[in-house]
Design a protein around this nucleic acid. Sequence first.
DNA 1: TCACATGTTGACCAAATGGTCAGGAAGATA
DNA 2: TATCTTCCTGACCATTTGGTCAACATGTGA
Lengths: 219, 219
Amino acid sequence: MTQPPLAAKAPAKRNEATRARNEHIILAAAEPIFARHGYRGASVQAIAEAAGLPKSNVLYYMGSKKALYVRLLARMMQRWNALLDDISVEDNPADVITAFIRRKMQLSLRHPEGSRLFAAEILGGAPFLQEYLRGELRDWVESRARIFEQWAERGLMDPVNPVWLIFLIWSSTQHYADFEAQVLGITGKATLSDDDIEEITAFLTRIVLKGCGVREKTI
Amino acid sequence: MTQPPLAAKAPAKRNEATRARNEHIILAAAEPIFARHGYRGASVQAIAEAAGLPKSNVLYYMGSKKALYVRLLARMMQRWNALLDDISVEDNPADVITAFIRRKMQLSLRHPEGSRLFAAEILGGAPFLQEYLRGELRDWVESRARIFEQWAERGLMDPVNPVWLIFLIWSSTQHYADFEAQVLGITGKATLSDDDIEEITAFLTRIVLKGCGVREKTI
DNA sequence: TCACATGTTGACCAAATGGTCAGGAAGATA
DNA sequence: TATCTTCCTGACCATTTGGTCAACATGTGA
């Protein structure tokens, strides 16, 4: 039984900058490696080299390989949650769906490594994300689904299964990050230009809106 | 310089059955492991255990980990190619697209492990499939794309970018195999029933046909 | 029966794996 | 200056990695 320090640790705020900087470097180096090789396939040594730090230093800041991986996943889930904003039955379906597709597309392309990290995790059976999928995310999907159904009841769109619709939007947008290698190989491009992105976004929006029979603004 | 056997090896056909049987066992055991963990993350030891064979025996039949992996990829590409059947401008767009979606969906769900294997390979930057993507598959896409364009010219469907359309069909069908963990987690199901599959297929077909303004049979 | 190819496997190897730890460097507070 | 905390890292460890090999088993054809 060691006596806890009475005065606590007042000078807790110390060299925070160093820690923040190094953690950022490590996370940035680790994300593409986990994305590319999966959890098992990634090695701490490779991450350390990419970060330009000794392996011991990576372990010092992150504790363990697993902790590092979980942290990356959590960061990506945060980004995900940020775009799960609230919508209401009163909103215009066309606007909401358009914005949803656009945001999802931007998320995928702004964080392709994170997107692939997430994909690799799901591909592997989502060992670390079961809880999130069956909890938070599921609730979100259900609530959106109910709104889609209400829109259908009001005749604002066709009565399609809203869950399949959400999956359609997810998969078709995610594809351009996760399957980037395939997309570039087939199109023969080195990268997708901003114009390409814009075109794809417009294409997907158009297909979904028209395909679901979403009425254009009636006002 | 060793003299090559003159009589060649007439009795080459030997215990073929044993080889065929064991190779099949090994391939079946390896596919889900590579799919789940990627190339690097999979271990020969784990594959051997899943196959119920000693590691040495796996190496004996497959030569090396890489050779085993490439063989699995090749097998999956063969399945892929099998559904890339020929279509012509004279065909009915609605029929072709409907059949395409259905077949792609069946492929994904009949071989989910193979589908995930493929996905993991692409996620990792397609190190072993570059050639296939930039060659065979690219040609296939281009030729289909030209037909879609001709259909559009004839007023049989909207003039959408056919490549994006093909990607849309690929991604939205593939999703149910690759992201199975997510789909099941969110829907709360243990597996997707045949009815679910049928419903999803109908949903996707409907959205795509309607979204692209494909005319129903005019005859 | 013999001969020869194929099948089978435990022992073994160098390299890489994730992780620990002792000990020193550096910066802040007093 | 002395003291404390955080930072940093090379040496080290047990385990696992893909792969080799020699020895033996099995089956087939003559």
